[in-house]
Amino acid sequence: MNNDDSEGAVGNPRLCYIGQSEKAAAYRLARRLFDEAKAKGIDLSKAHVAMAAEVPGANYAKIRASGILEAMKEYGITSYEIIDAGGLEMTTVEARETAYLLAHPETTFLIGLGGICTDRLTASLKAAGKQPGEIIAGGFDTTPDTLAGIKEGYVTATIDQQQYLQGYFAVYVLYLYNKYGFTPNIDTGGYLVDSPEKIALIEKLSPEHIR
């Protein structure tokens, strides 16, 4: 559960996988961001996508980036860069994202490939002197600052991988496997959070560790 082999069942002799399909989730997120840009009349052929990763070589970052690249192809976007955000330390991540934005004024999209990078998007955009919506930003996970960023308009959307379901189905599938031999692959994630209603639901259930 939680993180599959980059080659799925081919690369790992697992029974089944219960968790987010990282590539599909990233693809869904990217399409949401690119549609937002299209609605604003931005010329996507000249757009630049910056993807910040805490650990650029890690499996999660590579697979999520591949989903975004697939969506970019469909929308005719060719310019992109994967940024090494320098690990999980928030000040370091924020400093690097901000410096990148200042050094790359051509940036149209800023996407956090992991939770910390996404959490720091709003602070980085503010520090770089950007207005809400000036750079179209999004990412993964639903940390308090990410949700606050969506409310303020700095972040367009984030992906909730719905970990509760990963834990719930993992136990349930083991039970079914033991009883009937079932080994289903279950995609629990890819829930796009991009509206006040969805945020309200997450904020309500978060203290109970459900969302």
């Binding site: 690990g87 330390e89 928030m90 000040t91 924020e94 910390i116 959490d119 940390t143 600052d145």
Partner: peptide, 17 residues
């Protein structure tokens, strides 16, 4: 200073410093 600025606690603060 860090928690006042970031408005959140993270267990990875200061890692690698």
């Amino acid at each position: 200073a860090q928690i006042a600025r970031t408005a959140c606690f993270t267990s990875r603060a200061g890692e690698g410093w």
